[in-house]
Design a protein around this nucleic acid. Structure first.
Lengths: 220, 220
DNA sequence: TCAAAAATGTTCTATTCGGTACATTTGGTC
DNA sequence: GACCAAATGTACCGAATAGAACATTTTTGA
């Protein structure tokens, strides 16, 4: 039994409350999707109440949009730490691909948020200038590597950094996004540690192959 | 005004009704996801009523599972039409990759069903032996090409057909699944027809590069 | 020909869920 | 130290939604 006099006291902490909500929201939306996620569930896993979700984020969609942005922010921060300027171009590209591959593996919630956003035709991402800027920065980094490689004659001319980024993303993203169906159909072996190293190497190889100044059989 | 005596007459057609429901269900689930799709919406786009959905499929999950299966069936049928046995291995692999790339582009609903199933950790796919069998067949086809290529010495030893299939799928799948976010961030140019041809060629090149018996720079 | 089974239509309901109304506390500021 | 805005808590509501109940028609087969 509680005492008659209820203690409803707290200390105000807007930033902490917002962050708490956002981090719970990311994991909930990532787990269940936009329509699958329940505001009540998110609220219950928070240190605060549903009231505050609506207070700070307006409605479910507002929360989702901010969670998506937060997920991008967190993951791009990790990428920004990578500095490849001092490496020769081929080595830099190798490192970039391997890093991206691993980084995606380590951020499944981010991958799932992007999957969900794609299901919704990127309607909520479209309005976020923040996200666009972050990604343009990622391309700039890759473009610099390409240019250096072309200057010293190890990369072919006419390389398209965006197309290269597409390919790096495709492998790294698919490896996480489609793991459930792929395992269900072909078994989980490909996702064990040693097999993942092979796959990662295969990815690096295939991307270097299109970047490097060497004959490709299909161009014959 | 209607007459007092309502005419509620119909002709029975179970198969047509089931098919009608399934095809509507595929497009609805593909568009809105498992929890986002509304049974009432599906029903309203059908020539029949909600009653029949529950009559034939039990509940929403039952409908979803059958729709997923139907989506796989349809797409794998398209693939089965492709016969590459008469082609030399390198040519066969080239055709297989290019075909897969285009086939995925032309079946966005299937891609979206698989995306959604991945969001749900492939829980519903896991129980379907049908789907597993279809996909194993797809691998067998690829494995045959690999073997022939190794026999005549144009493909490297130790090729893993599943790993190769992983790579082909990654590019072809990502190209459709992540088009919304990718376009939102980097612009839609990459998805215009001529750019898609370049991307497809790049995909073919990169896969041939890992399959062929040639030195890869990273192995030096 | 008629009874039983299969197929279909119509209407209603329990519940879940996003969102709101109302009440209270905290903290800054003059 | 009193007032006010910001921050938080509690209890509630209306709409949407999956599914069930009830009713009718069609088909089959003995």
């Amino acid at each position: 039994m509680k005492t008659d006099i209820e203690r409803r006291s707290w200390t105000q902490n807007p930033e902490a409350v917002k962050q708490d909500i956002l981090s719970v929201a990311i994991s909930e939306f990532a787990a269940a999707g936009l329509s699958g996620a329940r505001v009540d569930t998110i609220a219950s896993r928070t240190r605060t109440s549903k009231r505050m979700i609506y207070y700070y984020f307006g409605d479910k969609l507002g929360l989702y949009t901010r969670a998506l942005e937060a997920a991008y922010l967190k993951v791009r921060e990790g990428e920004a730490a990578l500095n490849l300027d001092h490496l020769p171009p081929r080595e830099a590209l190798t490192r970039l691909v391997a890093f991206t591959f691993e980084h995606h593996r380590q951020n499944p919630d981010f991958i799932r948020m992007v999957m969900i956003e794609n299901i919704h035709n990127a309607e909520h991402l479209a309005s976020s200038q923040v996200i666009r800027d972050m990604n343009i920065a990622a391309i700039d980094k890759l473009a610099a590597i390409c240019r250096r490689g072309q200057e010293i004659g190890v990369f072919r001319d006419g390389l398209d950094p965006v197309a290269l980024h597409w390919q790096i993303s495709a492998a790294s993203f698919f490896n996480v996004s489609n793991r459930p169906t792929f395992s269900a159909i072909f078994g989980a072996e490909l996702f064990e540690e040693d097999a993942q190293e092979r796959i990662r190497q295969q990815t690096v190889d295939s991307i270097l192959a299109v970047a490097e100044l060497r004959p490709l059989s299909s161009s014959e």
